[in-house]
């Protein structure tokens, strides 16, 4: 009944997890109304699978290295105003900018790669090691499985962005201290307001990356090679950045999944410019919806061999 029932199965290893999952599903079914209990249980077991894996933990560790490097590098040699990547020159005045600098640096490749890895692994990974078949053998509807997988991807991408900015904020505050924050508009806000805005940035980006995760989920249903799905996601991400940089395709830009990501900087204006942020969230929601439905359309009648 308790969460502990699931623990031996899906977290200790691929070989035994199926047995555990099947056993618990069967065990819980007669004793309780299964719908409510199973709904969070499946997600919890999925999250435990994602965050319990060594490689994912190592990935989160690597993501955390960037803010540390930034904080130390800026501490060692202070950048001149107007030089270096976005927000760099502001770090010395307020450590919270480490968090924003790391987000703007990692949103090009690192964070999309992390989300792409999880998303690519979501279905193809299970198919690859042969657990997908068993997962579907228990009374889990395929639609619900895709919903849970996507929920887990969204949670992971939020955790990853929040994690990066948390490490950045802690490192920055430790090395440079906090205090009033100077916004892009030249006005200053208090520490409480500053923290609020620095929290909003990773949440916005996390939701944006979740749309990339939906694309990854769809690709993941097409293949049984998780690495292939991951590479495809990263290629699409880079491709989107390239298309965004070609001025002749300006009509396409506002439709690209990556186009609005840098708009998180609008959170640091006074007052906040919500227009592009809203567009970014709507675009992300649109991509998520279309590609989740595409995953559903393809996966619902797919022959599962793995």
């Amino acid at each position: 009944m308790s969460a502990a029932d699931l623990t031996p199965g899906r977290t200790t290893g691929p070989a035994t997890e199926v047995v555990g999952a099947v056993a618990t599903q069967v065990a819980t079914a007669p004793t309780a109304r299964p719908r409510r209990h199973v709904s969070t249980r499946f997600l919890r077991s999925e999250l435990r699978l994602i965050f319990g894996r060594r490689r994912n933990q190592a990935g989160l560790g690597i993501l955390a290295v960037v803010p540390l490097i930034i904080a130390i590098a800026v501490k060692v040699s202070t950048p001149r105003a107007g030089r270096g990547p976005d927000f760099f020159a502001s770090i010395t005045s307020n450590g919270l900018f480490v968090s924003l600098s790391s987000l703007s640096i990692e949103l090009g490749l690192f964070l999309p790669l992390a989300v792409g890895t999880i998303a690519g692994d979501s279905v193809a990974g299970e198919a690859n090691i042969g657990t997908l078949r068993y997962l579907l053998a228990v009374p889990v509807h395929r639609t619900r499985m895709l919903a849970v997988k996507f929920a887990a991807i969204t949670i992971f991408s939020l955790v990853a962005t929040v994690w990066v900015s948390l490490v950045g904020a802690v490192a920055g505050l430790a090395l440079f201290g906090g205090g009033e924050m100077t916004l892009l508009s030249g006005t200053q806000i208090g520490m409480g307001q500053a923290v609020l805005r620095v929290v909003m940035a990773p949440v916005y980006l996390g939701l944006c990356f979740a749309s990339l995760g939906a694309i990854g989920l769809f690709i993941s249903t097409l293949t049984e090679q998780p690495i292939g799905a991951t590479i495809a996601v990263v290629i699409l991400n880079v491709m989107s950045f390239i298309l965004d940089a070609i001025p002749q395709l300006s009509w396409l830009h506002e439709w690209l999944p990556t186009h609005w990501w840098m708009s998180f900087g609008d959170l640091l204006r006074d007052p906040i410019v919500w227009g592009d942020l809203t567009r970014g969230l709507l675009t992300a929601a649109g991509y998520a919806l279309v590609f989740w439905l595409a995953a559903w359309a393809h996966f619902s009648d797919k022959d599962v061999t793995g």
Partner: peptide
């Protein structure tokens, strides 16, 4: 008046 940098560059001139 505040001139916002175009997307992708975080800057502002007021």
């Amino acid at each position: 008046m505040a001139l916002l940098g175009s997307l992708g560059s975080l800057g502002e001139s007021d």
